[in-house]
Amino acid sequence: MKTISKKNKKAQLQIMENVFVLIIIFIILIIAFVFAIGMQRSAQKDKLDELREIELIKKSQILNFFPELQCSDNNNLEPDCYDIYKIMSFKEKMEEDDAFLRYYKFLFGNIKITIHRYDPSPNTQNWFDPVLLFDNPKSEDLGIKIVRFPILLRNVIEEKDYFGVIEVGVYE
């Protein structure tokens, strides 16, 4: 009788041991599963950010082929150079002509273009008032991603080139 009781207890202990091992393995699997889901979510978010950046790059590329604003000499466009008089004329046309504005809204999408001029001379050293060239925000404000490039701002009448920055923001 005693031997049977002992054997029963032994068997119970062994079963308990196996149960504990299974529970631990189960917990480890759950942790691994939760971790994998977390990693997947993070990877999806990174992918979404990457797509947004590619969209920003595509939009900013438009400005590289923009004869309406770029400096030109005998129809040859100069890279990194924008004509001040073309900029002012473009801005005026945007404000006065609805069809003009609609066309560029279609072409650019939801972006914002701002031009800044800076005088780096040691005795002056100041930023001029920025020129908001184009702004087409989305109805919902989800933020804006910005890319900036240095540019030359050319005054063709005075024959002077000034230091400038063009800022392209894509609404998210």
Partner: peptide, 12 residues
């Protein structure tokens, strides 16, 4: 781009 622009910038 920065160098191309800065080198051609007119100063006071």
């Amino acid at each position: 781009s920065f160098l191309n622009v800065m080198m051609k910038t007119k100063t006071d």
